[in-house]
């Protein structure tokens, strides 16, 4: 099962490699990983999308917590979070396919951010499943290049998670 885990870490030297090497050293999967500073200067927040059965996820959570630089770990597996991802997508767009691309962009409320006579570059934002869906539609038209940010997640409701 896929899980999205948020990890609040001290902005210390080498913290990213500690987290990454924990996953590789123990044979845990990483589907995506994002990291950036938070509102608190000393902290960064990572969002890791991983997979595994309950026992593996329990270990991932515990092992992350065991790292000295990790302040908090939150497992968003139960749908308690809103997830967003951004993709930059360069597609072939010539003649009759230009209109088709525009239609798809419109339906998904994406944006064209660069245009050439032969291509469109699209910025799409949404739940990772939505990104998968737009890609499924664009792929037959000729996908030249794809960059995804990986998911970021935030809990639903009024309660904020400091940092």
């Amino acid at each position: 099962m896929q899980h999205t885990i948020s990890v609040l870490v001290e902005n210390e030297f080498g913290v990213l490699s500690r987290v990454a090497s924990l996953f590789s050293g123990r044979g845990f999967n990483i589907d995506s990983l994002t990291v950036a500073p938070t509102n608190d200067e000393g902290l960064s927040r990572m969002t890791i999308v991983t997979r595994g059965d309950d026992q593996i996820l329990e270990q991932i959570n515990k092992q992350l917590n065991k790292l000295i630089d990790v302040l908090k770990v939150l497992d968003f597996s139960d749908g308690s979070a809103i997830e967003r991802e951004m993709a930059l997508i360069k597609v072939t767009a010539e003649d009759e396919s230009r209109a088709e691309v525009l239609r798809i962009v419109d339906i998904f409320r994406a944006k064209i951010i660069d245009v050439t006579p032969k291509s469109y570059t699209i910025e799409a934002t949404g739940n990772p499943l939505k990104i998968d869906a737009i890609l499924d539609l664009l792929r037959p038209l000729g996908l030249k290049e794809l960059v995804r940010t990986g998911a970021v997640a935030i809990g639903r409701g009024a309660k904020g998670w400091k940092g």
């Binding site: 080498g14 490699s17 500690r18 090497s21 050293g25 000295i68």
Partner: peptide
């Protein structure tokens, strides 16, 4: 880097 998997923690 070499000792990351076999130390509890490390500092530079």
């Amino acid at each position: 880097g070499i000792t990351r998997p076999c130390t509890k923690h490390s500092f530079l």
